[in-house]
Computed example of a mutant assay.
Amino acid sequence: MYSAVLVLGGAAGAFYWAVIQLAVGMVTAWVQSQGNLSVSSTPAVVGGTVYVGGDRHRVSALDAMTGAVRWSYTTGDQVESSPAVADGTVYVGSSDHKVYALNAGTGSVRWTFTTGGQVESSPAVAGGIVYVGSDDGRLYALNAADGTVRWRRETGAEVQSSPTVVARTVYVGNVDGRVYALATDTGAVRWSRNIATDTPFSPEVAGGLVLVAAMEFEENRVIALDATTGNVRWSRHLTAKYGLAATGGSVYAGAPAPDKPDLTSEVRALDALTGATRWKHRLDDALSGPPAVVGGTVYVGGEGKVHALNGATGRLLWTTHIGKTVRSAPVVAGRLVYVADREGRVVALNRATGVRVFTSG
């Protein structure tokens, strides 16, 4: 038996919880409404507990099998930062300018650190250090144990993207379109590169490249930087407005179609080393979220549809009409792919065929 868990914000600010358990020949499902929560960040699932932030100022821990609230902690403002969990501690930012470290078992405060702006960036934890950005224009490296500052780096503009830590380097972008590579231990600048007006998405690091979706009016681009030097390896004009997914030597992105951007889209696969288009597939659908790539299949959601494409060729495998706009990235677990729609429902589809297994609510 295997389980999949998906948490999403529901209609009218409700919070819905779905757990689907599958075994050979058996599908069961339940849905529980948690009206006192409203989710605005991506959950973290660790050790049978789901940790999530919301726009009602709360960080909550829920039982992964029942949806029961184990504890809830109220910050001073909404929580758009996604929690990171490491060594029994939940690290999360809040719009009240603070970074919180909470006991993962009880929700009690272990420490807080106050920045000079809202913290929408999601923390990354590596080697006993918490890396997190702030709207005060700085990236902070905090001791995970007590919240004391190891170093801070001024970037000159709000840091709303989440840092990515690879080996001994942390990569992050700011809203002025500058990407930084910093030493994890000192914050020293290994390199920085100004590439656009805004880099709202977290960098993807793969195959010695830092891949970013750059937003600059009509000059939206996907850019690959050398991870060691920051030099531009390649740049392609593409409006990857929901971010990227990189795996297996390819970079996947969804973009509005040039002739009918409000009605149709193109899913593209680019060669990660050269930026050359490997394939593109036009969909009669306006995409509404980032792609997910699992097991050689690309899953994307749009205005009432979910699509699956072959990751190597771009061939459309299936399209399923679910009726409402998809609000989440597809989540793949076991034999199913899950999406959340604008009505706050969970729709579960067979990942191989697209056949609907169930719709919650």
Rank of each mutant, 00 (worst) to 15 (best):
V159Y: 02
V212I: 15
D285H: 08
T75K: 05
A86D: 13
M65Y: 11
Q32P: 00
L270I: 08
V69G: 01
V92D: 01
S202T: 09
N143M: 08
T325M: 14
D63F: 06
P261T: 12
R236C: 05
P83A: 11
T197R: 11
F15Q: 10
V109F: 08
S161Y: 10
L142D: 01
I195D: 00
G354Y: 08
V189R: 12
M1W: 08
W318F: 14
L317I: 09
R178N: 06
V232K: 02
S121N: 08
D262Y: 14
R351G: 02
R70W: 09
W30G: 13
S82K: 04
A104H: 02
I322E: 05
A348V: 13
G208Q: 07
Y73Q: 06
A333I: 07
G128E: 11
A18V: 15
L238E: 00
E158L: 06
R190G: 04
R190P: 01
V205K: 05
L209H: 10
A206N: 02
V306G: 04
A253R: 03
A64E: 11
L6H: 12
V267A: 04
P83E: 11
V165Q: 03
G208R: 07
Y91S: 01
T228F: 08
V119M: 07
R345G: 07
G47S: 14
Q21D: 14
Q21K: 15
T325D: 15
E204H: 10
V19K: 02
E204P: 00
G254H: 04
T359E: 14
H321E: 14
A167K: 10
G133E: 04
T313Q: 06
V346Q: 04
P261S: 12
R168F: 02
V46S: 09
L273R: 15
R178K: 14
